[in-house]
Design a protein around this nucleic acid. Structure first.
Length: 1153
RNA sequence: AGGCCAGUGGCUCAGCUUGGUUAGCGCGCACGGCUGAUAACCGUGAGGUCCUGGGUUCGAAUCCCAGCUGGCCUACCA
């Protein structure tokens, strides 16, 4: 099939649809993979997007990076694994389904809807979303295994995560423990650190007075016997019912503060709040460094305007300002933190919380209601005395364990006080805040009440503020494998480097044990069965193992069986004593007998944190260990890439589970990419309403433009500001590429061009000019450079280079250089050379572009290459990525750069002289002392001649025709010569500047004799710096400089030049009319010219040239003047006959087909 | 509070790894040109304290330190 003439305009929608359809129809993706099957393996793992239902620009960017990189690797000959993945479990979908079914809490799920029903709805929802998102990714032209992705609810996938947990158990890294964890009271489940979002919230901020049980001050310090209080700050009053201690930092100083004057004792203005009336009675103890920030300066200065009794000239009384200094409070005593250790206090809510009385009287719990040391106490906020409730804070919990405090947590899973909550039983914790505050106030223990705006953790899905609760949860002991994790990070190649060395390292370094249990439904059930009798536990590692161990008859199919509620029903017989490796270190009832207990084992009801789901993707997607062939081939992965939010997410979860399961990190190279922000640099979010949908961009600009833009707009690891306007630039670039393609096919189709009929060794067949060799060299250089960039994931550099090649090298330069050659009719070897250069460079270009813009490159390939070249492939994406080092001629590339500069300089010079480019000039002279410039000019002289429209190109080290005019440098001479300046002025003006310059250059000075009759003869000596030179060119010479020299253009008009100029003026107008008449490029015409005799004579010997250029059969000169109007009215419209003005000449042209 | 990243004409961004031309591209703006790639294209021009302040150096947009602003992440915000 020959090359067809391309459609005139670039219609992205039509093209992309057509190409995507043809990929499907011809199974191009499958065949491309098949083609590379034997190649070296390059393994990639897709970070599974969550099945939220819609992709956003960030997910689009993520997949575009992956797709581009993988298409490139495929063209490089690698055999790839590019399975798509889907994260399907977890709370976000449960929430959506809850909304759909109008469910408010867990009770409704379990009792009204039923777990089975709920779970199946979740699955249905996930599937629906997955399909919708798949379509969106396909619209972007992303090539992945969409028809066989890994899906986290697939039983074969899930059992890999079971196996991983079993592995953790075997290594002693799985444990159940009572700890304080983040809890969402709405979802009624534990949350991992990665599931907490931080938002600004307003909360109460109260200072509470805890009275000392025994006074510390003696009569001297405290003669009035005022009560002493520890001043404690909290923003969570609801945790006060669980208060069991106060923590201080042993390294701090603590002050005893006594207020001197009740009236003036006001809170620091910036902190002013609602002060309790009783608040100042007594002595407050707090960290010394915080006294001033809370109470303000010790001495208060009040300025008062006082009447002096005198009256000023306006009759107004004169006032003066008086300062009243008042001592507000007094620091009676300062002690070390350690001095406070062990002091006991009276718990303020002792009457409200009966349980607290029991703790107080418990002889084993001697530390209850005392001051304890804690390094976590800081001076940033608060009072340096920290309210400690071991049931409600991770730090408090640690202190509680260390000092044997009860882990008291009177709050249930819904966030309500339970029966142990005494007076507050049944109350939701946040609602109890004002009640508790009021109780404190009434009892005189509230010092101050105000509010504070601070960042507070919320549930990542429902945004409910989290609370800390002490609950029994399952953990992976990350703290035990942390060192290994840290050393594994170092083995990974991170792009950028700081992603691994800084950010990720720090996150892992601070990691705590991983809470993996969730009290929910739609997730991977934790495969732990516990014996009801002996407490022994068993971790099931596969479906088969489950079936083998089950004493139930199993009717559910695997998909249902592995999910709740079906798996909950499976009962396993306890065989604790047969398998010693199943001994549970955490078991409440250690099993030390030898008999088999035969008890019933039931599954714990929890499901897994979804981060485990995706964390195990590396082997679960390969169905390891149930299958091992793929695993052996592909694991670990050569490359993954995700956004920087995945530092705490997927990068971490894979590392953790990888180290637990295999003692290694499952990936070798990571590109951490940025986020897509809006035009203002703000994160896109639904609440801000600034979200841009990828489909809208595709609609307006096309997938290729979007892809190119995303890779071009910023460095991959920086955040990307999405600016609509910038898409236009990319669109323009694609348009220009398309125009070049259209231009090429117009002529190639006309001439039935085929590059394979050209014999490059036969000059009768084809002649490659320097510019042809140049563009081919440039194209090969492009491949080489872009390859380097893509290998390093420098997509922004790759796209810039491609952009530059298309616009600068190909469109603005090469096409311009060859344009004249394409207009030749016969089978000219020189024309074929231009075709060849154009064809080859486009062929190379679209291959480079293919991974980034797979549609347009395929479209061009289909017409230009496929079926034309004998070694062409079914698709451009099956082509090999390569370049020919032998065709790269960097010397030629450099020369062309110089020549291009020169041509642009000459165009500039003509422009300044208003001398049209269309008019030829006799000569231009390139002046330079740089040999490489002269070489370049000599080498590419024909290019300059052609583009500068000149008869000759001369070179010189100096321009002979230049006339220099010498001027005095007033700056240096003025002060020196004073009245003698006139003499110098005169001398320089009267003498030949060129001679002066020469003399200065040769001798370094000139001497001006002064003949003065009165005084002795003297001389004035001028050195190089004293004389400045202006250039003066002859009238018809114009010049402009370029990097490396000057260009002088001779604009003298000779008869020959005029003749040619006029011919070209005529040609331009005839062409204009051809176009206006919408004539075919090939159509021949008859031209009649009406002009006066002079004009006719001027162009007479150019008739043949003109005819050639405009495809005229003949050109007649005729008198049309008299009846031109008749022509217009009768036979011809104004397209066929037109009056023109060329210079001062009126000319009428008639064109006939 | 800590960590990381960024700050370059009106706007989006390169350049920084490896210090060395007159700091560059594109958009926009102004002026001009071209007219068989043409709902395009080309040229010229104006426009910059390279966030601020120190330091290293012969020389800093680039390296170091401190600060400011913005973004993200993290935290035991009691």
């Amino acid at each position: 099939m020959p090359i067809k003439e391309a459609e005139k305009s670039y219609e992205h929608k039509k093209i992309e649809k057509e190409i995507q359809d043809s990929w499907v129809k011809n199974q191009v993706y499958f065949k491309t993979n098949q083609l590379r099957e034997k190649g070296p393996k390059y393994s990639f793992l897709d970070g599974p997007p969550y099945c939220s239902g819609k992709i956003h620009l960030g997910t689009a960017w993520n997949k575009v990076i992956k797709d581009t990189f993988l298409r490139f690797k495929s063209m490089k000959g690698f055999s790839l694994r590019r399975q798509a993945g889907w994260d399907t479990h977890g709370l976000p979908i449960e929430h959506k389904v809850e909304q759909l079914l109008d469910i408010k809490n867990k009770q409704q799920i379990e009792e009204d809807i039923g777990i089975a029903n709920f779970v199946s709805k979740c699955k249905e929802f996930a599937l629906k979303n997955k399909d919708a998102m798949t379509n969106q990714f396909e619209d972007l032209g992303v090539w992945m295994d969409w028809d066989k992705p890994y899906v986290t609810f697939d039983p074969k996938y899930m059992e890999s995560s079971w196996w991983t947990l079993k592995k953790a158990h075997e290594k002693g890294l799985l444990l159940k423990d009572k700890r304080v964890i983040s809890w969402c009271p709405r979802c009624e489940t534990a949350l991992a650190a990665a599931e907490i979002d931080y938002e600004d919230k307003i909360d109460p901020s109260i200072y509470v007075k805890f009275p000392l049980s025994k006074p510390l001050l003696d009569d001297v310090d405290n003669p009035d016997g005022l009560s002493e209080y520890f001043l404690v700050w909290t923003t969570t009053p609801w945790t006060l019912p669980a208060n069991l201690a106060i923590c201080m930092n042993p390294n701090f100083d603590y002050s005893f503060v006594k207020f001197l004057n009740n009236e003036s004792n006001e809170f620091n203005d910036s902190n002013s709040g609602n002060k309790n009336e009783n608040s100042n009675e007594g002595i407050l103890i707090l960290a010394s460094d915080l006294v001033e920030s809370i109470f303000g300066p010790e001495i208060k200065i009040t300025k008062i305007k006082k009447d002096t009794g005198e009256i000023d000239e306006n009759g107004k009384s004169i006032k003066k300002i008086e300062e009243i200094k008042e001592e507000v409070y007094e620091i009676i005593k300062v002690v070390k933190g350690t001095d406070l250790e062990g002091l006991s206090y009276e718990y303020p809510l002792i009457d409200e919380i009966p349980e607290q009385k029991k703790f107080k009287n418990d002889k084993d719990k001697i530390n209850v209601h005392t001051v304890l040391p804690g390094d976590h106490v800081e001076l940033g906020e608060g009072t340096g005395l920290v309210h400690t409730a071991p049931g409600h804070g991770p730090d408090d919990f640690e202190i509680g364990k260390q000092f044997n405090l009860p882990i008291f947590c009177p709050v249930d899973e819904e966030g309500n006080f339970n029966s142990l909550g005494g007076k507050y039983s049944g109350e939701f914790v946040k609602d109890a805040n004002p009640v508790i505050i009021n109780d404190l106030k009434e009892k005189g223990f509230l010092y101050i009440e105000e509010t504070i705006e601070h960042r507070y953790g919320t549930c990542w899905r429902c945004k409910t503020p989290i609370i800390y609760l002490a609950t029994e949860q399952w953990f992976l002991k990350i703290t035990e494998v942390k060192d290994k994790m840290l050393s594994e990070i170092k083995k990974v190649e991170w792009i950028p480097k700081w992603a691994g060395e800084g950010r990720f390292h720090d996150w892992v370094d601070n990691a705590k044990d991983w809470t993996i249990s969730r009290q929910r439904y739609w997730g991977i059930p934790i495969p732990v069965w516990v014996c009801e009798d002996c407490g022994n536990i068993k971790v099931i590692g596969s479906v088969k193992e489950l079936k083998d161990n089950s004493i139930n008859k199993i009717t559910a199919d695997d998909e249902d069986l592995v999910h709740r509620p079906y798996v909950d029903e499976i009962i396993i017989k306890c065989d604790c004593c047969n398998e010693s490796n199943n001994l549970d270190l955490n078991s409440q009832k250690p099993n030390n007998t030898n008999k088999i207990c035969n008890g019933k084992m039931k599954r714990i009801p929890d499901v897994l944190d979804v981060w485990i789901d995706s964390g195990v993707a590396g082997w679960a997607s390969l169905y390891y260990p149930q299958e091992s062939k793929m695993f052996d081939e592909w694991f670990p992965y050569d490359f993954i890439t995700e956004g920087h939010d995945q530092t705490r997410g997927w990068f971490y979860s894979q590392l953790g589970t990888g180290v637990i399961a295999f003692d290694q990190v499952p990936y070798k190279k990571v590109l951490m990419h940025g986020f897509v922000l809006d035009e203002m640099g703000k994160k896109m979010s639904k609440s801000l309403g600034n979200v841009v949908q990828p489909e809208d961009v595709i609609e307006g600009y096309g997938a290729d433009v979007l892809r190119f833009y995303l890779l071009w707009a910023s460095k991959p690891w920086d955040d990307l500001k999405f600016v609509w306007d910038e898409l236009n630039n990319i669109k323009k670039m694609f348009n220009i590429l398309w125009n070049v393609y259209v231009f090429s096919t117009t002529y190639m189709a006309l001439d039935n061009f085929n590059p394979e009929i050209c014999d490059l060794n036969d000059e009768n067949s084809i002649i490659l000019r320097d510019e042809d060799k140049w563009i081919i060299s440039k194209a090969n250089s492009l491949v080489k450079d872009v390859e380097e960039d893509l290998n390093s994931a420098f997509f922004h550099k790759a796209t810039r280079k491609i952009n530059n090649f298309i616009l600068e090298d190909l469109s603005r330069w090469y096409v311009r250089l060859i344009r004249g050659r394409t207009w030749v009719e016969k089978d000219d070897p020189d024309k074929l050379g231009a075709y060849y250069g154009l064809y080859t460079s486009i062929e190379i270009l679209i291959k480079v572009l293919a991974p980034i813009a797979p549609h347009i490159s395929e479209k061009i390939y289909e017409n230009l290459i496929k079926g034309i070249k004998s070694d062409s492939k079914l698709s451009i994406h099956m082509e090999n990525w390569d370049y020919d080092e032998n065709l790269i001629d960097s010397d030629l590339e450099n020369k062309m750069d110089i020549v291009r500069d020169i041509i642009e300089a000459s165009a500039r010079a003509r422009d300044m002289a208003k001398y049209k480019l269309r008019w030829p000039v006799n000569d231009i002279t390139v002046v330079s002392t740089d040999k490489s410039v002269i070489n370049a000019v000599n080498h590419l002289k024909s290019v300059i001649k052609d583009q500068s429209n000149t008869k000759q190109v001369l070179t010189s080290e100096e321009f002979e025709n230049i006339k220099f005019i010498a001027k005095p440098n007033l700056k240096t001479l003025g002060p020196r010569l004073r009245q003698d300046m006139g003499i110098v002025n005169k001398f320089l003006a009267e003498n030949d500047g060129n001679k002066i310059k020469l003399e200065l250059e040769n001798n370094g000075k000139i001497v001006i004799p002064i003949s003065d009759n009165d005084i002795n003869d003297k001389e004035i000596e001028l050195s190089v710096g004293d004389v400045l030179f202006d250039n003066e060119l002859p009238d018809d010479i114009v010049s402009s400089d370029f990097d490396g020299g000057n260009v002088f253009v001779n604009t003298q008009i000779t008869q020959e030049i005029l003749s040619e100029a006029m011919a070209r003026e005529l040609i331009r107008r005839i062409q204009d009319m051809r176009k206006d008449m919408d004539l075919d490029v090939e159509a021949n015409i008859n031209v009649t010219v009406d002009a006066d005799k002079d004009f006719k004579n001027t162009i007479f010997d150019k008739i043949e040239f003109i005819s050639n250029e405009v495809r005229a059969n003949n050109i007649l000169f005729d008198e049309l003047h008299g009846d031109s109007l008749n022509y217009k009215d009768n036979k011809y419209d104004d397209k066929h006959i037109k009056e023109w003005k060329i210079e001062n000449e009126n000319i009428i042209l008639k064109i006939e087909k």
